[in-house]
């Protein structure tokens, strides 16, 4: 990554430890502004943990995180989380309708979401207006994931953290969501950090990629590194996923 870029998020010797187990170990690096960076790596590598630290849901036990060059702890947590939006891996829904779920980010600010707005967000993720009054508990896993993505967009954050947002989707829907994310990235210059188990996806839509294993970043660079990894462990990981 020899190109000069402005970091949206910068990590400096970041650790995350619970009890004696180190979940994130000494990670240093930047997520460039306006770019899509993918995070790949085996289950339990610490990808979700890393994203949660960037959204302030948890704090590093050592090291510093900077958001737009300001120390993360200088932000008010509420402002931080609105600016650095996150779609959680489990795509949780609150009790109520799809509409109430979409309105949630605004309701937390005592604002309302117009029905037309809600329909347009649903359209973005490929759901029609008939979903609006559906009970969120009746959604399929894939539909829930779509609503979760739409809901994350409502805050119109400058940085989006996407945790395996297409893992439960069919091929056509995956493509639709990929196009949506690329479009948002292009149109609004939103910085994206996208965790995926789908390496083709990482290659196709990510500008940069980080490979995490056992809490450490073992290779980073432009996404095409996945085609020809240098590190022996990454090579084996890529072969394992691709075959």
């Amino acid at each position: 990554m020899e190109k000069v870029y402005e970091p949206a998020i910068h990590l400096n010797h970041v650790d995350f430890q619970i009890g004696d187990s180190k979940i994130i170990q000494n990670i240093t690096g930047s997520f460039p502004k306006g770019k899509i960076t993918t995070l790949v790596g085996p289950s339990g590598a610490g990808k979700t943990t890393l994203l949660k630290m960037c959204n302030g849901l948890i704090s590093p036990t050592a090291g510093e995180i900077f958001i737009h060059n300001e120390l993360i702890s200088t932000y008010n947590p509420v402002d931080l989380r609105r600016n650095v939006g996150m779609a959680l891996q489990s795509a949780p829904m609150i009790k109520g309708t799809v509409y109430e779920n979409l309105e949630l980010p605004l309701k937390l600010q005592n604002k309302k979401l117009a029905e037309t707005g809600a329909i347009s967000y649903l359209g973005d993720v490929g759901l029609d207006r008939s979903f609006l009054n559906k009970n969120a508990v009746d959604l399929s896993g894939g539909q829930r994931q779509k609503v979760s993505i739409a809901r994350t967009l409502v805050n119109q954050s400058e940085i989006l953290l996407l945790d395996e947002i297409t893992s439960a989707l069919d091929r056509a829907s995956v493509k639709e969501i990929e196009e949506l994310i690329v479009k948002i990235n292009n149109k609004y210059n939103v910085t994206m950090i996208w965790i995926t188990h789908n390496l083709e996806q990482a290659l196709k839509i990510g500008h940069y990629t980080w490979v995490l294993m056992k809490g450490e970043v073992i290779e980073t660079g432009e996404s095409k590194l996945l085609e020809n990894p240098q590190n022996e462990l990454v090579k084996r990981f890529v072969q394992g996923v691709m075959e």
Partner: peptide, 15 residues
């Protein structure tokens, strides 16, 4: 998970 969701969207502990 719902508590975490609301926090992640910029809600306060009370919300």
């Amino acid at each position: 998970d719902q508590v975490e969701l609301i926090l992640s969207l910029g809600g306060t502990p009370k919300q």
